[in-house]
Amino acid sequence: MLSIKNLHASIEGTPILRGINLEVKAGEVHAIMGPNGSGKSTLASVLAGREEYEVTEGEVFFQGKELLSLSPEDRAREGVFLAFQYPIEIPGVSTTNFLRTALNQVREYRGQEPLDAVKFLSLMKEKMALVEIDQKLLSRSLNEGFSGGEKKRNEIFQMAMLNPVLSILDETDSGLDIDALRIVSNGVNKLKSDTTATIVVTHYQRLLDYIVPDFVHVLYKGRIVKSGKKELALELEEKGYDWIKEEVDSTATV
């Protein structure tokens, strides 16, 4: 489904991603871990099409299409969803209104009729139950004054509404309380299918207890320096990153 080949990207001339290779197949869950500043969010942003990042080398295919040549909105309409590490506030625009605009544009792109108010509302109700989000939150200005956890839950609610093919969750667990983590993770699991894939960026095993990854990758200095099965995450939890850093830094010719 997603094929990243030798991806290099820089911001304001500083290289951040320095040769990422990753294959994600339908039905899979990949976890991306790594120390602060290693480039995890950058990778997510580049895949979503943030223009501040300049792709200097490499290719990305998404369902056979050249992802990097698509506009950010077309990537979203093709089914790429990014749950932001730091969700953005839009004053005066309710989540409901925001999602209605988004959903109808996605539907239009896919040649579907816009949803009428009644159908939209019933879809909302269904997805609200999935992540146990309060209606009141959805009528407030998007993310404005939301608590950290509310923002994250709202991201997953949006994901549920838009029903993406590839979901990239950037530290969705941070800010969620223990119960919320379980609820939101279960929501994500329910949205999974044979035809969708999930990339979760996280620092902690606790999320991976719920959303069990098929593969775990460690990103360090803009490269995937280690990949393994779900056990790798447990090992990282126990030992930290130093052993990997040492391994890399001793052999690296940067």
Partner: peptide, 11 residues
């Protein structure tokens, strides 16, 4: 803000 909207499919 614009990128956030774009990412949800909004032109």
């Amino acid at each position: 803000q614009i990128f956030y909207c774009n990412q949800r499919g909004i032109a």
